[in-house]
């Protein structure tokens, strides 16, 4: 069976597909949230680690790590769609990149916020100029820059392409920025943030962390598609298929 993928690349045909997918993603989100939260709060120990245990506050891990992962993943998704848009000149990919950005910015903010609330009881400070924290802050600035540039340009085509280029430049700079913050003195390097090591994590904690990550991911899909539908409607307002949809809505 051969699928014609370019058929889905037109906003008119993707609009109803997204509409049908949104409820599916909502159900998945709620289901995974329920499982992840139940497991995280009732099936895990109230202490973590040995001699210097992390107490109940470590439960922030179930939202901190997923939102940090999603914030980075969504930026990659954004740049991916932006690059596809620049190369193949498809309208839908730019709309997709646009729809991802605010959700990604929200996850970045949440990663910072939950990190601060975790840092206070475990490190004794809400904020520290640690490499990962600082990089996450820079990522937040990159999202804000993308959104600001896009909304400052009135011409949609120019806005799409200019902010796409900015996003790509940002992604190229991210490793350099991370490395420069991680290692401000090239003669020696150090970091406060614990290294991630998934294999050392207790199974129950890992299970609810991954479940919550999936839940956030499904939420990302749902929110992005909702925004995508709004963007499509606004941009295609003059097309006949939108008018037909409007008439159908009025009769209903």
């Amino acid at each position: 069976m051969t699928l014609n993928w370019f058929k889905f690349a037109s906003p008119a045909s993707f609009y109803p597909i997204a509409g049908r997918l949104i409820p599916v993603f909502w159900i998945l989100t709620l289901l995974l949230l329920a499982i992840g939260l139940y497991w995280g709060f009732f099936e895990t120990a109230s202490k973590l680690g040995g001699s210097n245990p992390q107490k109940e506050y470590y439960r922030i891990i179930f939202i901190h790590v997923p939102s940090a992962w999603m914030s980075m993943w969504l930026y990659i998704v954004l740049v991916g769609w932006a690059a596809i848009g620049l190369v193949f000149n498809t309208r839908l990919s730019f709309m997709m990149a646009n729809a991802v950005a605010p959700t990604g910015a929200i996850f970045t903010f949440l990663a910072l916020w939950t990190g601060a609330f975790w840092g206070r009881p475990s490190w004794g400070t809400y904020w520290d100029w640690d490499p990962r924290l600082t990089s996450e802050l820079v990522l937040f600035f990159l999202y804000i820059g993308y959104i600001a540039l896009h909304s400052a340009i009135d011409d949609t085509r120019r806005a799409d392409r200019a902010s796409a280029l900015l996003a790509i430049v940002g992604l190229i700079m991210v490793p350099v920025i991370f490395w420069s913050i991680n290692c401000p003195d090239p003669n020696q390097c150090a970091a406060l943030h614990q290294r991630s090591n998934l294999t050392r994590i207790d199974g129950n904690i890992l299970f609810s962390m991954l479940t919550m990550t999936l839940a956030f991911w499904m939420y990302g899909f749902a929110a992005t598609f909702m925004r995508l539908r709004s963007i499509i409607l606004t941009r295609e307002a003059e097309n006949t298929w939108v008018q037909e949809l409007l008439n159908a809505r009025r009769q209903a």
């Binding site: 820059g145 600001a148 540039l149 900015l166 940002g170 700079m173 350099v176 920025i177 490395w179 913050i181």
Partner: peptide, 15 residues
Amino acid sequence: LLSLLILPLYIPILV
């Protein structure tokens, strides 16, 4: 707007 876009990218040089 320019400062919003560019200043984060200047971090490595500053460091």
